[in-house]
Design a protein around this nucleic acid. Structure first.
Lengths: 374, 374
DNA sequence: CTGAAAGCGCTTACAG
DNA sequence: CTGAAAGCGCTTACAG
């Protein structure tokens, strides 16, 4: 099998680094696509023509053409014979968009946070049940950006998009890519994001509810100096949690924004502990683990000295030390609603721009307890 | 924008459930692909023809054709003018394979196990550094099967494949799909799998080394009744760990195979504890957490009564109760080697079928301790 | 229902 | 280096 030259179609823009790459200058691929090779097509033997099939079956090319294109006015017997001929000769229909089975793309931030893995898992299952295939686009720091993925999707046969905690949750920055995709009619649905300028369907866990459950639980244990450790303030869930926190009569000084990671949780906890808080509500379970680490690094104990509440109820949280009290996102319900909305959008239903809030559940484990004055 | 009818091209096989689905009977899509809509093409206005461009630029269709196809023998000035004309009129080249930028597909089992999330994260980063885009195919129970994904890949523009702990690690069952892809020249690379009948490159963590480190550590603590809790025996890593275990002089009765999950770990531990073992080496961290749960459910403590060793050193294991002693897979090194091999295969380097073993590290935390006779 | 033939969009020797 | 013209594979009125 001959390896085709690795230049773009024009041949004018130098050699391309890899086979089947498109040329950055003219956006054109090579003449013989590399993918044709592993599809098992022999690029050297000419492909089957309509005329070949017509000759074998003993009909005109017109008739074969009609069958291939599903035009009416072909006797059933003839159609069957032609279909058989197409099959045996291996005639391939030229589909510029790439014939495919309604592939769904799912955008998720980095998979380091197990919650996003759970969303992905739940979505494959739900989509598989609807006989859909899903492909995951993970961005994450150091990886491919969400915008790069969205550009990519324009060149790949994708029929629907589910975005989980994506840039549409980022209150800074524009969502041009999503705007363009939606304007073009790409069925799209969002989980844990909201952008009023995007006419999409948004399915979110209620941050207000999560905060009120967490704070209520701590107050019942007698805590009054309650801190809130959040990730980047530019993300909507962080903003909403902060608002809900203030709405409960707690002071703005008790809110610390760092980043959504173990280190971020530890840093936020450090400042909140310095300020004399006896309980900390965290923006994610991962941050909560960082907060616990900070408490212990000071020779204190959770929950004897300090209570910690997480958010997400991600996998394995029952096994942490101590088992984490946290607010469970209703992942299955969220995914089910999102998939349903996506499928109906794909079926042509008119877009119904709205935000639907889902109620979380407080899962009480061992990281919270009665206040203990220090 | 008109929504096209949702029937296949032949129109003879009933209505398709969704727009842009292919017909199960004739494998044909509809006439107007749905994807054309969100790409912003107006399906109702005819597309730009070569002749249109020729007229505007003031050359013959032959010249435009030459430029589009990169044929030689066009004056540079003419070529530039034509390229400009193509651009302004928005002429689109019909690329049946879908022009794309060398997309890489990564197959991973379910993301419930954080280790697979870590592999995915590491691979996006490494591929992004090489200016490659990656798309994740998660199988997992209840989801889309690996074989379904592999079939799908034949219809999508994918230029390379990395399979992590896939069916090629399954010693039962055939790997026809991989065989076909590889035979067709699809650049493919495997992580944590091995199938001698596949002429691919395999990058694996040494199971023998992992077991010998774990057992050695426990023996140093005085344990002699050491059990091994594994997942399905059909998977190669389970088989290899069992072999290594026996090679260390430990009895076959001390090996229990269940499944790779918390429940599997718990069930295996239950049988091993009944048989009087004082330490259990597990096939994954997730199984180890199940084993710890079983120990505790019997009123015993880890590591005071029973020592537990995990495998993977997945995310968050330092935060479990107790922090898990485990064997760390060298994920970064494994991914780096796999990506390098894949890129060179994509660049046309001859396939180099071989298995390369990577050495793991024992991470000693708090779930292991001196033997304590019961 | 079917085919001969005209037509369409693109490519490619051939002539200059 | 460029265009007129023949050719290719497919589609589509039109005639029967």
């Amino acid at each position: 099998m001959e390896v085709p030259a690795t230049t773009c179609r024009t041949g004018a823009h130098g050699t391309l680094p890899f086979i089947a790459t498109i040329c950055k200058v003219c956006k054109t691929g090579r003449n013989i696509p590399h993918s044709a090779r592993w599809r098992g097509e022999d690029v050297l033997t000419p492909r089957v023509k309509l005329a070949d099939v017509a000759k074998v079956v003993g009909v005109s090319t017109a008739t074969v053409s009609r069958v291939v294109n599903g035009k009416p006015g072909v006797a059933e017997a003839t159609r069957t014979a032609v279909l058989a001929g197409l099959e045996t000769l291996g005639y391939r229909i030229d589909d510029p968009q790439g014939t495919h089975e309604g592939l769904i793309a799912v955008m998720v931030p980095e998979l380091g946070n197990p919650t996003f893995g759970s969303f992905a898992n739940e979505l494959v299952i739900q989509l598989a049940a609807a006989d859909r295939r899903m492909v995951l686009c993970t961005s994450g720091p150091g990886g491919t950006s969400e915008d790069q993925y969205l550009d990519l999707l324009a060149g790949v046969a994708v029929d629907g998009l589910i975005s989980v905690s994506g840039t549409a949750a980022d209150t800074l920055g524009t969502n041009d890519h999503y705007q363009r995709l939606l304007a073009g009619g790409m069925p799209t649905v969002f989980i844990n994001a909201y952008d009023a300028t995007i006419p999409g369907a948004f399915f979110n866990t209620s941050d207000a509810e999560a905060i009120s459950q967490s704070v209520g639980h701590l107050r019942r244990y007698g805590h009054t100096r309650i801190g809130l450790a959040l990730g980047q303030q530019r993300y909507l869930p962080a903003q909403r949690k902060a608002e809900a926190f203030l709405a409960l009569g707690l002071p703005a000084e008790s809110i610390v924004s760092t980043i959504f990671s173990i280190e971020g949780g530890q840093a936020a906890a450090s400042r909140l502990l310095d300020a004399g808080h006896t309980a900390i509500v965290c923006g994610s379970d991962v941050m909560a683990l960082g907060a616990i680490r900070e408490v212990r690094s000071r020779g204190l104990e959770v929950p004897d000295d300090i209570s910690i509440v997480g958010y997400d109820d991600s996998a394995l949280m029952p096994f942490t030390s101590p088992a984490l009290t946290t607010v469970r996102q209703p992942i299955a319900a969220l995914c089910q609603a999102a998939v349903e909305a996506l499928l109906s959008a794909m079926a042509g239903a008119p877009a119904d721009p709205a935000e639907i809030l889902f109620h979380p559940d407080l899962i009480i484990r061992r990281s919270t307890g009665p206040v203990h004055d220090r």
